[in-house]
């Protein structure tokens, strides 16, 4: 639930847009009502992503989108729900790296292979941050310091075995630094331990650290993205600082396996169009979401590759047997 906060914010104007619901779709979508399934509960990260997307996509496509929350089991229940749905484009699922991690780590009966990605939409940029009292201004400086004082470095991630926790493990291997890495139960606790100086650095999404960032209590040391973020042009990426670390937290849609390619293409086109609309753009840019649109075929390829990558690193760190 680490990113529920960010996406919640976007819901602010949700009711305002309903009057726009005049269908101006070019070709009618085959279903009047489309169900969007998410593993997050009402108000959680993916829930808000879907509701916000639906608010803009619905009028554009002339489709009535309904969000269904199938929480529990870190996505396992939602995947089971998807496996039973007809592959005719009437049901989609909001993807994040979570459903792949859950499939690999807890091996539910129905896993991510029962789903077929239809599109990827956004990337949630991840950053490394520290408290303002820290002498360091960049991630490179932190690493340099850790090398000089072995056994002193203390890093934190929000959740155990999360994408972020694994990213810190990679950071250690890439730089040769040995740090004590502490996992928490969510971003709040992590933030406390960064603020009170227990930890040198924390890793997380921008929205998680927004309150402290605005108040001038924390400083971003590096973004773990391909390019610098538009909102923080002065912050260098890890790569620019000589540390080849990029964390890909994607958001997208998937249907049941064997989904009707026409429906997939229609949804993809709809998303592509709506991403360019100024109203939607204003909102997602405010939340530092980076557009990473990929249509059906590309999304399938990307997700497959991503899953392989995650599987390999889980095996590497002993979380999965080879």
């Amino acid at each position: 639930m680490s990113n529920r906060l960010r996406v919640l914010a976007a819901l602010a104007a949700l009711p305002l847009a309903w009057p726009l619901a005049e269908a101006n779709a070019q070709a009618k979508y085959p279903h009047q009502t489309v169900t969007l399934v998410t593993h997050s509960s009402a108000g959680g990260g993916s829930d808000v992503f879907l509701r916000e997307l639906a608010r803009h996509l619905g009028p554009a496509m002339g489709v009535n989108f309904v969000v269904e929350n199938v929480s529990g089991g870190s996505g396992a229940k939602a995947m089971a729900r998807m496996a039973k749905a007809p592959p005719d484009g009437s049901v989609f699922y909001a993807t994040t790296p979570t459903y792949i991690q859950t499939t690999l780590l807890s091996k539910p009966e129905v896993g991510y292979t029962a789903l077929e990605p239809v599109a990827t939409v956004f990337l949630d940029p991840e950053v490394v941050y520290t408290r303002v009292e820290s002498p360091h201004k960049t991630l490179a400086a932190v690493i340099e310091d850790a090398k000089k004082n072995p056994g002193k470095a203390k890093w934190g991630a929000a959740n155990p075995a999360s994408l972020e926790r694994i990213a810190l493990e990679r950071l250690m291997r890439k730089t040769g630094v040995k740090a004590a890495v502490v996992s928490h139960e969510g971003g709040g606790q992590l933030m406390i331990n960064v603020l009170n100086g227990t930890l040198d650095i924390g890793i997380g999404e921008i929205q998680e650290i927004r309150a402290q960032l605005d108040a001038g209590k924390v400083r971003i040391l590096a973004t773990l993205t391909d390019k610098r973020l538009d909102q923080f042009p002065e912050v260098a990426t890890a790569r620019e600082q000589g540390i080849d670390l990029v964390v890909t937290k994607f958001r997208g849609l998937a249907g049941p396996k064997g989904i009707d390619p026409k429906a997939a293409a229609a949804i993809g086109d709809g998303i592509k169009a709506v991403l360019a609309s100024p109203a939607y753009k204003k909102e997602y840019l405010k939340e530092n979401l980076v557009v990473a649109f990929m249509p059906h075929a590309e999304a399938v390829k990307f997700t497959g590759g991503f899953a392989k990558e995650v599987e390999a690193s889980l095996q590497e760190f002993g979380l999965l047997k080879k």
Partner: peptide
């Protein structure tokens, strides 16, 4: 319970 605990997989992240 001890036996079940003993059978837990060991993680390198541990």
């Amino acid at each position: 319970y001890f036996a079940a605990a003993d059978a837990l997989p060991v993680s390198l992240l541990s």
